[in-house]
Nucleic acid binder design. Sequence first.
RNA 1: AGGCGCGUAGCUCAGUUGGUUAGAGCGCUACCUUGACAUGGUAGAGGUCGUUGGUUCGACUCCAAUCGCGCCUACCA
Length: 918
Amino acid sequence: MDKAYQPAEIERRLYAEWEAAGYFQPGDATDTYCIMIPPPNVTGTLHMGHAFQHTIMDALSRYQRMRGRATLWQPGTDHAGIATQMVVERQLEASGEHRLDLGREKFIARVWDWKHESGGTISKQMRRLGDSVDWTRERFTMDEGLSKAVTQVFVQLYREGLIYRGTRLVNWDPVLHTAVSDLEVVSAEESGHLWRFRYPLTDGSGHLVVATTRPETMLGDTAVAVHPDDERYQKLIGKTVTLPLAEREIPIIADNYVDPEFGTGCVKITPAHDFNDYEVGQRHQLEQINILTIDAALNDDVPAAYRGLDRYDARKRVVADLEAAGLLDGIDEHRLMVPRGDRSGAVVEPFLTDQWFVRVAPLAEPAIRAVENGDIRFVPENWSKTYYEWMRNIQDWCISRQLWWGHRIPAWYDEAGQVYVGADEAEVREANNLDEQLALRQDDDVLDTWFSSALWPFSTLGWPAQTDALKAFYPSSVLVTGFDIIFFWVARMIMMGLKFAGDVPFREVYITGLIRDQDGQKMSKSKGNILDPLDLIDGCDLETLVSKRTSGLMQPKLKPRIEKATRKQFPNGIPEFGTDALRFTFARLASTGRDINFDLPRVEGYRNFCNKLWNAARYVLMNVEATPPDTAIDTTLPGRWIRSRLGKLITDVHTQFAAYRLDLAAKALYEFTWNEYCDWYLELTKPILQNDGDIAQQHASRRTLVVVLEQLLRCLHPIMPFITEEIWQKVAPVAGASGDTIMLQAFPENTAFPADDAAEAEMAWLQGFVLGIRQIRGEMDIAPRRPLPVLLRSVASQDKQRLADHGRYLQSLAGLEKIDILHGDGKPPPSATALLGDMQILVPLEGVIDVAAEISRLRRNHDRLSADLERSRNKLANERFVANAPADVVDKERGRQAGLDKDLRRIDEQLAQLQALQ
RNA sequence: AGGCGCGUAGCUCAGUUGGUUAGAGCGCUACCUUGACAUGGUAGAGGUCGUUGGUUCGACUCCAAUCGCGCCUACCA
């Protein structure tokens, strides 16, 4: 074995072996476990958030697989309608082409080309991350099977009246030329203005003043509204105003929607271009005048002067014209929420179009109940609130998109505009007895990407066919995902799963935090703070990193700043850490219910951990390879102790996995490995193995060394798959484990390693002894290699026994020359002191210790002890404490006080003796 | 406006039903190349747990208020 762990070659080799051997496939156990991957965009790349979630999913999968369950981690990708179409459109643009020139069919062919070209990136990344997904079952949302499922669901929902088509006001993206759902619109506060305009009353008796943030839409006004109780405008209700510029007569109506306190208390109503106004218009049967084109320019339904103007040019023109006409009452600065498309960034327009909708409320009801009654559990629990909040106020879902890339809506129209919905044209014709001569045209629109994603948990398993996979793995066990797609995806999967697969799609939903950068900033390309998980695994030199972060920026002017920040944060680029170190970092950071600020130095720490494990294994193998261990029972203290500790670790790891606390599982594993196994156990085997001691004990210790390591490797494997497999391959034969891979070994159970309280108590004594000496050594600046003579005082018979049993460990770990017991009231020489229970451990000063230094060390101890003692005394002097606190707490406090008191007296004695020397 | 969350060591974070001296990693200080490991070892410094009040024998932990930060949902033209 190399002296240091070298991950790169090992990882690639092992993953290929695992995959070729079919270890990722579920096997045929009846107890099943299943995780559906949240399908990433097929042409995208995995970012840190993916790597984090994949670490969790893979650790869970490997853990359950080792527990003997038939485990399926279902992989696949999403066609990501808008995102993918945009990428390909941009590629066309670069070569001077345009989607519309190409035509639908050719364009879609180009997208498929791109999918094939770039779709391999994600699977490569997943393989490097060690993801144990069943590649033989990989799916894509536009696969034939999944597309069939989409059609079937659409048709059934339509037949049940849960899908309908209608002319509605929707969010229109004027750049992408498509409708988008509410969820795809992000509103942010921006500065703007609030204009006040005078609208003259038609009867010439004056005017009223309306306030608006969108002057250009006044050309589509069909009413002015006031609050019914607003005394100022009482007598105007029912009258009309003459809409300026358009010169149309429109009514003054009363509606509770108006807030009399805001603006002037008069609202212009534009039903075709504002969601609230639309509602008002419905209530008052107002005309809807659409004044915009699909590009958000003004159309031909406005006066000639404004036709063809972009909405913002029109705004200027309208304001100028009204001002010229003396109708501008004033302008105020105003902060307002501006809705933008999450993909294009364009300001979205409420726009009247024909679209398809899902009537969601009836589907939401059982989906709400499923969470209420515990069929689905959110982890952490409080996310269920977010879920309820949205589900209980759910709006119909606009599912049609005016795109080409996606599942085309299975609806056909005849020339009269009659719509027929069915699986395909032939079926539609047959079902409706349509003449072959009758021309049918399929709906041009495609479905929202999330429509197919909603079916993912059962469509990937073969639904609508009742496949064996569906029976075995539906419902899946847990969904691991981010809070940002609870509405987009989680809620919709639950609704569709209940409706079509007859059960919830998963039992638990583990909502992970977001991976942010070291300063808590969201990672994004535009901020230039993204990290590629593979760069952390393989390393990345500074120049490559800079160019990755600064190329293809939406705002090129940010480039210098990003470059500077990057050079500052990574002066030497990123070193190679390996997959396991990255995964362990993610696991260690995966505390629930909060976002994660990704701290790069931490990865380095866990790379060191890998190296520590690697070298521990080297030590073990060095000691056991030559003489294979026999099966003798280990009666040595260190052996009994480490087995007992291992049992506790195993219990802990099971508990934490069950609670999705991978951070605590990783913490327990780290601490056991480093602080117990390496720091103490390996060190304690040295005096056993290196001296000419008891041969039986040596054999037993070799066995414990290798058995504990082998079990530890299994425990670590779900989080650190590669290093554990590599070491296991070497360790298993000497540990007496059979099998080809650690992946399929049984996860350890604590029953094989019962608690040994006696050993733990003795070991605590031993550790206390060693630490006491080390403390003196460290603080007195005594050379580590210098053997020290030690005197013991107040030695109880138990101490004597322990000394006899474990003296050699003390000598080895504390570097002792000899240990003498001070009998009776023999006067000790001036010494440095450590306390161990009642026993005093004395290191004679002569020639070794600086008296003044020891005095100051003892004083510090004295101060600390007396502060503690005083606190304890006060507590016990408090009658109410003694009366009210549980007896065991009081007893504990009394014992503590007695101990502190005794320790303090010993320290003071020692102090007095030393002070007398000065 | 409503909802959720956060504030603990220089930095990034743990702290499970209230109960000894509040922990870890990184960083920092001193010493140490001892045959598993300098990607290491040993010892050490460093925190009035955002603030105030309350409940309690006892509060990092429970309650209320308050300050600061973040996110989500909805939205007044």
